[in-house]
Amino acid sequence: MDEKVNCTKCKCGKEDKFLKKLFTIYKPNKDNLIQMLNEIQEHYGYVPMYVQQELSEFLKIPMAEIYGVVTFYSRFSLEPQGKYKISVCLGTACFVKGSQKILDRLSERLKIEPGETTEDVLFTIDQTRCVGACGLAPVFTVNGEVYGKATVQDLDKVLDKLLEQEG
């Protein structure tokens, strides 16, 4: 999370090198909005407000339109994501094998709803559609690492381990 706060618009005054580079790779063409947002989401973990403002100036699109696109697609988020993003697959194959129970348990333990992030920005719960590992259903992933044929007990173990690591 180190360089993510460095930006042109916040008080740190440091230059946001990533954004500067992005503006040289892409032409200021409206069509590039989603592609650029994908890279921004990947880099920062979310789409910060000041980045939206910069984008708006660069692409000559009103802020409202950018906000509209960001909120339309589930991949983009407006809030910083937790250090550990735990995604429970709710694709049909996982659902019929009981992934809802895993999601419920996760919400219960972290005391947040799916889509939310814990206050200490450690965990984000995400409910995803099919991750394509239907052969291993039900699955959940922690920062992209897949845990297959998962049970509530497996989830507990993983959570315990992560919590211990973080003290």
């Binding site: 709710l90 694709g91 049909t92 194959a93 996982c94 659902f95 559609r129 099919c130 394509g132 239907c134």
Partner: peptide, 10 residues
């Protein structure tokens, strides 16, 4: 391919 539980195209 957005159908939950489908991975043919992938």
């Amino acid at each position: 391919e957005g159908d939950p539980g489908a991975f043919m195209d992938r």
